[in-house]
């Protein structure tokens, strides 16, 4: 029978295990430019900081789905400060060539749920506060 489990990881580590993306997506940052270009899926983040008022333009872009924005490091415009994209996105631009894009995160009890479905060519600043992952052409 199962015995009481030893605590082996903190909350952040535990979530990181759950949210680890597939290796195929690990290097995805679109075409590598800091702009949001045609055919990319782009996220804009905003974060207040004691030293910087950071309002990243389109902080990170993708060509594929990605399961853990908490693993994406983004920088402010002069690279003086960085942080994780996480679920800080406040703006989205879906320029994908073929797909709608679902914005996903976990509910209170840890089950994945989608918080938005962005059509092609949609650009907006709606604040879907739960946005730690995204999926292209997803069927659920």
């Amino acid at each position: 029978m199962r015995k009481v489990k030893a605590a082996v990881a903190g909350a952040v580590i535990g979530l990181a295990v759950l949210l680890t993306p597939a290796a195929a997506q690990a290097e995805d940052n679109g075409n590598g430019n800091s702009t949001c270009d045609r055919y990319e899926i782009c996220f804009r983040a905003l974060e207040s900081h004691t030293r910087f008022s950071v309002n990243w333009n389109f902080s990170h872009s993708f060509y594929y789905s990605y399961g853990a924005h908490s693993l994406i490091r983004v920088y402010n415009n002069d690279h003086a400060w960085s942080g994780t994209l996480g679920n800080k996105a406040i703006g989205f631009w879906n320029r994908d060539s073929e797909c709608r894009v679902q914005i996903l995160d976990y509910d209170t009890y840890g089950y994945e749920w989608f918080y938005a479905d962005l059509p092609r060519d949609y650009r907006g600043d709606a604040g879907y506060s739960m946005n730690d992952a995204h999926k292209r052409c997803n069927r659920w």
Partner: peptide
């Protein structure tokens, strides 16, 4: 995970 079509760039 479900299949994703190719991105065309």
């Amino acid at each position: 995970e479900q299949a994703e079509p190719s991105p065309v760039v």
